[in-house]
Computed example of a mutant assay.
Amino acid sequence: MDITPLRVAVIIGSAREGRFGPTVAAWVAAEIGRRRDLEAETVDVAEMGSGTVTKQLGLADAFVVVTPEYNHSFPAPLKATIDDHNAEWVAKPVAFVSYGGLSGGLRAVEHLRPVFAELHAVTVRDTVSFHGGRRCFDAQGRPTDAESVVAAERMLDRLAWWAHALRDARAVRPYAR
């Protein structure tokens, strides 16, 4: 069993001007940074055209997708990133942190689950959602509700379990699609 820290790509799923995603992603990366078993690298869909994104996704053992909800779903640049990097998702776990309006982005998450299933990725059941987006964070970019931190710990525990299991399995036997 490989005990090196798992590489987690924290994906900023929005490319809109004035977006809130970088704040949420920075918080998620900081939560990952508090752990010994995980290390974070931020991937921004706004930088889609660069080869750096492909490399970051390819090296990742797991993913945390940070997504807003636009029109009851997820942003088009996020879909383009997912579709343009088919092999990078295979047999790897994906967790979600969402934000926006009354639903907290949960409709976007529910639309993302079958997309990742089609790519042979495993989605983690536990999520973190922020109902009201910006209002849920203080001026330092931290959630104002302590339950968000508890939810993130639980989600990252599940993500780490799946990432270890799938990394070990891929090392023993390549995943066949």
Rank of each mutant, 00 (worst) to 15 (best):
M1L: 13
L6R: 11
V10N: 07
I11T: 09
S14G: 02
A15F: 05
F20W: 02
G21H: 05
P22F: 07
T23L: 06
V24G: 05
W27K: 00
I32E: 03
R34H: 11
R35N: 02
R36F: 09
T42E: 13
T42P: 04
G49A: 15
G49Q: 12
G49L: 14
S50E: 11
G51A: 11
T52K: 14
T54V: 13
A62W: 07
F63C: 09
E69H: 05
E69D: 09
Y70N: 08
S73F: 05
S73T: 15
F74C: 03
A76F: 09
L78T: 08
T81N: 12
T81W: 12
N86K: 13
V90T: 15
A91P: 07
K92N: 11
K92Q: 10
P93E: 08
V94D: 03
A95G: 10
S98H: 01
Y99S: 01
G100S: 07
G100Y: 00
G100K: 00
G101V: 07
L106G: 04
L112G: 03
P114N: 02
F116C: 10
E118C: 14
L119D: 11
L119Y: 15
V124P: 04
R125A: 14
D126G: 10
G132K: 00
R134F: 06
R134G: 02
C136I: 00
C136M: 12
F137Y: 07
F137L: 06
Q140Y: 05
D145W: 02
E147R: 10
A151H: 12
A151R: 10
A151T: 05
A152T: 11
E153C: 12
E153R: 13
R154T: 15
R154G: 11
L156P: 01
L159I: 10
L166N: 05
L166S: 04
R167S: 09
D168L: 10
A169G: 13
A169Q: 14
A169H: 09
P174A: 04
Y175E: 12
A176C: 09
